[in-house]
Amino acid sequence: MKKIALFLLLCGTGFLPAFGQVVTSEPVEYTDPAQPLKIIVNLQQLDQTLDHVLNLIADAEAGLDLYIWTWKPFEFPAGHPKANGIGGAPWKNSNDLLKMTKEADYIYSYSMTPTEFYEVDAATVYAEDIKFLVKPKDGGGYGDPDRKSTDLTFEVNPPTVAKPVVYCFPTLALQDDIFRIVYDNDRETKTSMQNIASGNCFIYLEATLTDGTIVKPSTFFQVGNNPDLEMMDIGGGSFEKVFIPELFFGLQPGQKIDILKGVVMKKVFLTGDDRVDNDFILDMTCWN
């Protein structure tokens, strides 16, 4: 019963992810270094066979404040307002700006927006990740025993860049933007749709408007008879359809698209073998 209560408590406080791993984050899936990030460190997951780690945990148990000490993606030089430490013995005098927040026993956090904090671009954060350690204000040294965590890394990676077989560009658009849907036939895994010939690639398009009306230039079985629905061969095994949604669907002033749907198919559609497996769906909530 106690375990269940503890589990619920942890879920409620949001610290469940901190268990099992030394470093976690909020949000858990973090891919944009220009967005706020909370780095969470669980001291109990550190290697407690190390004296300097045991010293750090003892300091935390004694109620001392803990600080991050960071050197990647960028380390500010001595004297800079964001330098890790102050004065002639910086390791013994951490910068108050880097003080961590105690979230629970043994669990500490530091919040930042990486591109702003480190004053670097997103690409640098992706390349270097965030490297840091945790220490009390006085990290020892200079003849005293060290008091610190091991070196820690919080990896920041871009979202998966692999595009699906059918994708769009740009990834977000207003209905009067020039918009393209691309079919990467070279990466098609469905055998019956592989090596599709130029002139044989079409797309069924359908717009669901905010008032629930569905607008489509052709029915599913008439797509191959509508030249406006042909996807152009752009080489490299790819086909594309470029259009401006509000013109393509002949929308009247005030009409707004809610959902755009596309299904890539062959000119002659007879069975499910003649179309891709997954519909292209674009939620255009922000288009309205």
Binding site: P158, F169, P170, T171, L172, I178, R180, V242
Partner: peptide, 20 residues
């Protein structure tokens, strides 16, 4: 000539749409 730069991606992607 017209290019679109997709700023919705972490690393913006540019495409030339002049052929349109």
């Amino acid at each position: 000539k017209v290019s679109q730069v997709d700023l919705n991606q972490p690393i913006p992607e540019t495409r030339d749409i002049s052929s349109f």
